[in-house]
Design a protein around this nucleic acid. Structure first.
Lengths: 242, 242
DNA sequence: CAATTTTCATTTGTCAGACATTTAAAAGTC
DNA sequence: GACTTTTAAATGTCTGACAAATGAAAATTG
């Protein structure tokens, strides 16, 4: 691991990159302890605060964890699916909010990905996944449910559908797409009338998944996508009119 | 923005979270300048190195950028699709390498997502996308191409297919899935014989995309997926036998 | 001897202050 | 007015120090 003292980049960025590369390359393996901050600062010939800035960069990406004390230090962290979910959601959310992505584009991406999971989920879902979907549908029918709670339940429903595919890599990929859409979805579910229709469409999806009917699940998702687009257009039109 | 000095977490982690929340919530908007490090250290009642550690955490996630000089400082960064690609690829790569994900699982996820793009790409691809696909196929036929170069060309081919859908959100999601698979794909493409077959299958995909044939593209992708699985099983068997 | 307590060295977390470097604006000069 | 110099502000980096956590070794105790 070496750095170029003449580079224009920050030393801490270079050091972080050097360690990151070592982890990706496999020179540093999971749970391996990195040299202490003092040793690293000597190795790279920089001060301890600079090393610390580099380590914090890596910690922000969940690549390392630190522990205080005699046997403490920085350890290569096993990147869990849960960690990755969180980063994926944060990144996707900011990506959508900062880049003027049209509702149509985001919606298309989300349903395209979800439809990729549906056939697998129809084949492999277990009783738990189905029960979660039904429970969330039931929650959605409750009077007096706030828009936020309705949307959270919506996310949970789709999450169960995706998890039903039994493929953690797919679940990870979808987490960002589904959760990042929540703020946008919030806009279009605030009338009682649209809720009823959405719940019906959710029911159709659950029915198809229960019947282990891949084509039916796909068709039901397309229905939901079309209705979502329709609602969004209504909201846009109403907003433009007002 | 406030922090809890009694929390068990690092101060720099808390400060980073507070600023991150402010960005997500919209209290800090794109290109807005954060207070200087000196002002932040006064606001949070911590030292400047601690503030800097917090800022480096945010920089690692591309949430801020810093600039030196009189009018410099830390600015809220517009998270570009390109930035997000990079993070997505790094995260996906490490996720696969650190979590004993089976080849079958990773492969299934990758092709499920790619098949979600194929119909859209068949409808919307332009001449450039098609030309890139053809060029990469041609590159793959060249004698003496290293395994690494072949895989890179493979990635570029699939990237063009995905980009043909014209949906940057989809492209972003797929970037991780396709690129993270590259090391795994490396294993199974090192015989000249498999290259020929892969190139044929790539040709079939390109033909379907050129003909704007969604179903044909889907079928061709399924063929490629099946062949990929078959090759992987051969490699496993050979490795077990040896 | 076994169990418990204490001590201690190691490591990260935090702080204070200083200097170097970069940058753009302000002041000065022709 | 155009160019040069100065200056102030900000980040980048360093030094040195102390606090706090933590596990292991040493000392103590029954």
């Amino acid at each position: 691991m070496k750095i170029d003292p003449n580079s224009s980049k920050d030393l801490s960025a270079q050091i972080a990159q050097a360690i990151r590369d070592a982890i990706i390359k496999g020179d540093l393996i999971v749970d391996e302890r990195l040299p202490s901050e003092a040793e690293l600062s000597e190795h790279f010939d920089v001060s301890r605060p600079t090393v610390r800035e580099a380590l914090k960069r890596l910690a922000a990406q969940s690549l390392i964890r630190t522990q205080r004390g005699a046997t403490g230090g920085a350890f290569v962290n096993r990147l869990t699916f849960e960690d990755a979910y969180g980063q994926q959601i944060t990144t996707s959310t900011l990506l959508l909010s900062m880049n003027a992505v049209s509702f149509a584009t985001a919606c298309e991406a989300r349903y395209a990905l979800e439809r990729a999971c549906a056939p697998l989920s129809a084949r492999r879902r277990n009783a738990d996944h189905l029960a979660t979907m039904r429970a969330e549908i039931h929650r959605q029918t409750q009077e007096g449910l706030s828009d936020e709670a309705f949307c959270a339940s919506d996310v949970a429903f789709h999450r169960a559908l995706v998890d039903g595919a039994g493929n953690p890599v797919l679940s990870y990929q979808l987490a960002g797409a589904v959760e990042a859409m929540q703020p946008l979805m919030n806009m279009i579910t605030f009338t009682a009338r649209s809720r009823v229709r959405i719940i019906t469409l959710h029911g159709n999806i659950a029915d198809a998944i229960e019947a282990r009917d891949p084509k039916g699940a796909d068709a039901a998702l397309i229905d939901l996508e079309n209705y979502t687009i329709e609602l969004a257009q209504d909201v846009m039109a109403r907003r433009a009119g007002a």
